[in-house]
Design a protein around this nucleic acid. Sequence first.
DNA 1: CGCCAGGCTAGCG
DNA 2: CGCTAGCATGGC
Length: 295
Amino acid sequence: MDAGSLAISQLSGGFDLYNSLESGQTYTWSRSDGGMYTENPAAENAWYETIIDGCYVAVCRDDGQLQWRSSDGTVAPGLLRHHLRLDDDLEAIYSAFPDEPIINAAINRFSGMRLVRDPPFQCLISFICSAQMRVKRIYQMQQNLSSSFGTTMTADGRSIHAFPTPAQLAAATETELRELGIGYRAPYVQQTAEMVHDGVDPTAARNLPYEEARSYLTQYPGVGNKVADCVMLFSLGFLEAVPLDTWIQKAIATHFPACALDSYEETSQAIRSHFGPSVAGYVQTYVFHHLRTQE
DNA sequence: CGCCAGGCTAGCG
DNA sequence: CGCTAGCATGGC
């Protein structure tokens, strides 16, 4: 097992590991203390781990450093920079946020929280599963998919499951998926996995303009505008994407009523423009987490 | 028990 | 097009 560290002080705006990985934007990491999405704060030395492209990586915040351990030390630092967006200039991003009370409150609470850049297939499946589901259960469903259909690796003598590949998940039956608690989303998951396995590549959306990319992603069963926006923001790097979930729709009605229009498309356009296209997705993620974790 | 959870789809008018 | 019933499952 290789190991190393990155200096958090060199990152503009710092890095809040806990809120970045437990704000409901990613379901690809697990806390080694088993407390992922339990609403118990992570212990100071809690490790978050995942397997990406066959590479095991674990990270932990310790004394101003982002410590990491990995099965492949040659790729781990670059992998972390990419998937945790460590090169995002948070100070510049905050200064581009609109100066409004609810947004400022969110920045104050979660300063250092970064967007993630998740593996697209895993992101696609996890947000198909997210429909009408609580964050904690979405996470549990992804764990179930991994342990039932994903490849097993051994790290530190423990067995860990990677998220299934499109081929592995396409081979699952609807009945098997329902037994994992996937519910009525089971056929969507199976059929989407099959489409990706057959060559309909979600990453092809990267090369399209924003609204065409969103439309492209809705060809997968179980993917509407909202889920497509999540995939674009949390895995494809469209920082202008603002997923209009129930929380954000309420926030728009209350705090930005001029943007509360009739259709998803119109509201989306208005709120993207209001938040600022280059940072709108960041604003969304901060406000979402702020509202969802208020007492 | 009833209600709700990071919505979507099919089937209407 | 716009509108809405129905959808699985678990937690409160």
